[in-house]
């Protein structure tokens, strides 16, 4: 590791002042599951690392606003998985958070960090996108709020400017009935980075929203307002046609995790599956109550094992 100074400010204004002073020389540290790796492999060489975990305004809390839930910048994945309000209202986010690394990782990695790292394959991004998440940003110059869709720019790039940090993520509650599901394709069943990931949300009014990751420079949204996708009477062929149209936005590349061709083909396969799950959930009154812990539910039942709780 290249030497750096570590500091652990107690207030947000201290953090903002430090960020203002050091600019590009400063790195923010929350969970550290990405940053410490980058420090060790020397791909990042800050002069100062600002640990925000003791900042009183950034305490790891999930609060309630008039519009929905507010997830503080230091809330870790394990807390997202456990929170009963998130489980009830944003189950696909729980499913996504449960796939981020191992339990040891999820005990450290923050939701905000996952977003700020802006990996095209970030597992929580598709769920946050379909739920219409908004990002609260602060700097010495003031605060602003952007939608998550506006927040992502490209691989590792966000709209955050020099001196800005994310203080929280807002999740607005739905005004109509909806159901969503998160799914992804990996090379193995245990901890893995996604070859592709996606989230599908179906609303009672018929609107269907997908968000995709690992198939473009940034996670993106694709929406169908025709109502056809959510219509149980629509034919598979008709649905496929719409899905194919939505998927033209995807620009997958070939890398060690998969080829462009495979990713393209899997987008359609996984979209169909996610759509079916979301529709089933919408029709199932007992839902929402997502299964926990990334149970191995991506496979059609190899005789009797690994399946999580019902849903």
């Amino acid at each position: 590791m290249h030497p750096f100074a570590y500091t652990r400010p107690a207030t947000l204004s201290d953090v903002l002042a430090l960020l203002d002073k050091h600019g590009g020389e400063a790195c923010l540290l929350a969970g550290g599951t990405d940053l410490v790796v980058e420090l060790r492999n020397r791909s990042r060489r800050p002069s100062i690392v600002i640990d925000i975990k003791q900042v009183k305004e950034l305490a790891p809390t999930i609060g309630e606003t008039e519009r929905g839930l507010r997830i503080g910048a230091t809330v870790v994945m394990a807390d997202i998985e456990k929170d009963s309000r998130i489980r009830r209202h944003f189950p696909a986010l729980v499913e996504a958070a449960a796939t981020v690394g191992s339990i040891q990782i999820r005990n450290r990695a923050t939701l905000t960090g996952n977003i700020c790292h802006a990996s095209p394959a970030a597992d929580t991004a598709p769920a946050l996108l379909v739920y219409g998440a908004e990002v609260n940003v602060a700097s010495v110059r003031g605060t602003r709020r952007v939608t998550l869709d506006q927040f992502f720019v490209g691989p590792g790039k966000t709209v955050l400017k020099r001196g800005e940090l994310v203080t929280s993520i807002d999740l607005p509650l739905a005004d109509n009935r909806r159901a969503a599901t998160f799914t992804r394709l990996t090379r193995r069943r245990g901890v893995d980075l996604a070859t592709i990931n996606l989230c599908c949300k179906v609303e009672a009014g018929g609107r269907t929203t997908f968000a995709y990751g690992a198939v473009g420079p940034r996670p993106f949204l694709a929406t169908d307002d025709s109502g056809m996708l959510a219509d149980p009477r629509a034919s598979d062929a008709a649905k496929d046609e719409i899905l194919r149209r939505l998927l033209t936005k995807a620009t997958p590349i070939s890398d060690v995790r998969g080829s462009r061709e495979y990713r393209r083909a899997m987008l359609l396969v996984m979209s169909r599956r996610a759509l079916r799950t979301a529709i089933d959930r919408l029709q199932d009154d007992r839902f929402p109550s997502p299964s926990t812990g990334g149970q191995d539910d991506r496979f059609p039942s190899p005789s009797g094992g690994g399946k999580g709780g019902g849903a």
């Binding site: 090379r187 193995r188 069943r189 245990g190 901890v191 893995d192 980075l193 060690v256 995790r257 191995d296 190899p302 005789s303 009797g304 094992g305 690994g306």
Partner: peptide, 20 residues
């Protein structure tokens, strides 16, 4: 070698063992 190290050289985990 494009997949040096633990991130992209995948080995089996506890979830990759056969069901029986």
């Amino acid at each position: 070698i494009k997949n040096l190290g633990a991130l992209d050289y995948r080995i089996p985990t506890s979830k990759d063992v056969p069901l029986e």
